[in-house]
Design a protein around this nucleic acid. Structure first.
Lengths: 113, 113
DNA sequence: CTGTATCCCTACTGATACTG
DNA sequence: CAGTATCAGTAGGGATACAG
């Protein structure tokens, strides 16, 4: 998603940009309870997502500063991802989203549209 | 954004899908305080957004059930958009997002990356 | 185990023009 | 005033293959 003149000014536009990745919310959710290895993350993601995509999304989140990447120098490699400080603060949003998401799912199934 | 097998099941995946429009958060924010006319909405949006795009985004939000479209039969036409019931419930998310968005903006300006 | 380089393809945006 | 049709450009995801 390309930026616009309100990025960095308006909290909504800025959030929208950061959350534009197709899997960002889900990944952030999986990292809520502590560090998770790359492989473990992939295992917990929907099968429709390949490791290529996961790698890209994680890179974006790291670049945006929401996630930290910790490399343990071993063979084979061991890389853990975890929420940064700003990422931790995002938990409040995740919590609100989880609540609303479930309400919305209930709404969807109610009128079966 | 295309769907995946968790849409309608997982609150995060479902939310992500609904919020995928480039301007969805901003529009929902503008509708928080009551009905707004199409023209007025456009006036309040960033200039980089044309009325074609606004129209499409609104249509998506209406289809997804977050926004209601109310037509007053006049000439010239008068169409108001407002939050639906599920849309109203989304205010909690907007509130959390506004808080976090501002924290994130502060974080961004702090290390000037 | 983790990550990157490609390529293809789709979905979305922005621009322009036209309608009731 | 509100909306749609159309088209071109592009950003992003999925697949495959390869690498440290």
């Amino acid at each position: 998603m390309q930026q616009n003149e309100l990025f960095g000014k308006c909290p909504y536009v800025t959030s929208q940009k950061v959350l534009s990745g197709k899997w960002s919310l889900y990944i952030l959710h999986l990292l809520q309870d502590g560090p998770v290895r790359f492989n473990e993350l992939q295992r917990r993601m929907p099968e429709s997502m390949t490791h290529t995509t996961l790698s890209r999304q994680l890179k974006t989140l790291v670049n945006d500063g929401l996630v930290l990447r910790r490399v343990h120098s071993e063979i084979p490699p061991n890389v853990e991802y975890e929420l940064s400080d700003v990422g931790m603060k995002f938990k409040n949003v995740l919590s609100a989203l989880e609540t609303w998401g479930n309400e919305y799912i209930a709404y969807l199934s109610q009128d079966e549209k």
